Simulated scan of single mutants.
Amino acid sequence: MMIVTTDQVAGSEITEVKGYVKGSTIQTKHIGRDITAGLKGLVGGEIKGYNEMMTEARKLAVHRMVQEAEAKGANAIVGMRMQTSTVMSNAAEIIAYGTAVIIK
């Protein structure tokens, strides 16, 4: 599955638009990560536990978006974007979205 952030795929022609697709997940903080984050807040530095959590969340959101595009018969997604928002205390949603298309 080709995924691009642009509205076109260079060297290809969009022959059919299948529509909007998205994938999302909600991740919560782990108590161990919270303790580490608190300590890092005092001394500075990268919070690797959170970084790993968010990397996995992004992968899952994109995977779910691709599944939705495949179910519509698409072979590419154009205009892909990602957003995050706080859903509740200590929980964040990651959403990946774009337009499912067929390219030649």
Rank of each mutant, 00 (worst) to 15 (best):
D7R: 11
D7P: 15
V9I: 13
A10P: 15
G11C: 10
G11D: 05
S12C: 09
S12Q: 15
S12A: 10
S12P: 00
E13M: 06
I14R: 06
E16Y: 09
E16L: 11
E16D: 15
K18W: 07
G19A: 11
G19W: 06
G19M: 07
G19V: 06
Y20W: 09
V21D: 07
K22D: 11
K22R: 12
G23E: 03
G23I: 02
S24D: 06
S24A: 11
S24Y: 09
S24M: 02
I26C: 02
I26G: 00
I26W: 01
Q27N: 04
T28D: 08
H30E: 05
I31T: 11
I31Q: 14
G32D: 08
I35T: 14
I35F: 08
A37I: 07
G38A: 12
G38C: 03
G38S: 10
L39R: 09
K40I: 14
G41L: 05
G41E: 12
G41T: 05
G41M: 07
V43R: 00
V43K: 08
G44R: 14
G44M: 12
G45V: 07
E46R: 15
I47V: 15
I47M: 02
K48I: 08
G49F: 00
Y50F: 08
Y50Q: 10
N51M: 08
E52N: 13
E52F: 05
M53L: 13
M54H: 07
M54E: 00
M54K: 06
M54I: 10
T55M: 04
T55A: 09
E56Q: 09
A57G: 09
R58K: 15
K59G: 13
K59Q: 14
K59H: 12
L60Y: 04
L60E: 10
L60Q: 08
A61K: 01
R64S: 04
M65P: 05
M65Q: 07
V66D: 05
V66F: 00
Q67L: 15
Q67G: 13
E68C: 02
A69P: 04
A69G: 07
E70N: 11
A71I: 00
K72D: 10
G73P: 03
G73W: 10
N75P: 04
I77A: 06
I77L: 11
V78S: 06
V78A: 01
V78E: 02
V78W: 02
G79R: 08
G79V: 00
M80V: 13
R81Y: 01
M82N: 03
Q83F: 10
Q83C: 02
T84I: 00
T84G: 12
S85V: 00
S85A: 08
S85N: 05
S85F: 00
T86W: 00
V87M: 08
V87H: 04
V87A: 03
M88F: 05
S89D: 12
S89R: 15
N90V: 10
N90D: 13
A91F: 01
E93N: 06
E93D: 00
I94M: 01
I95S: 04
I95F: 01
I95L: 11
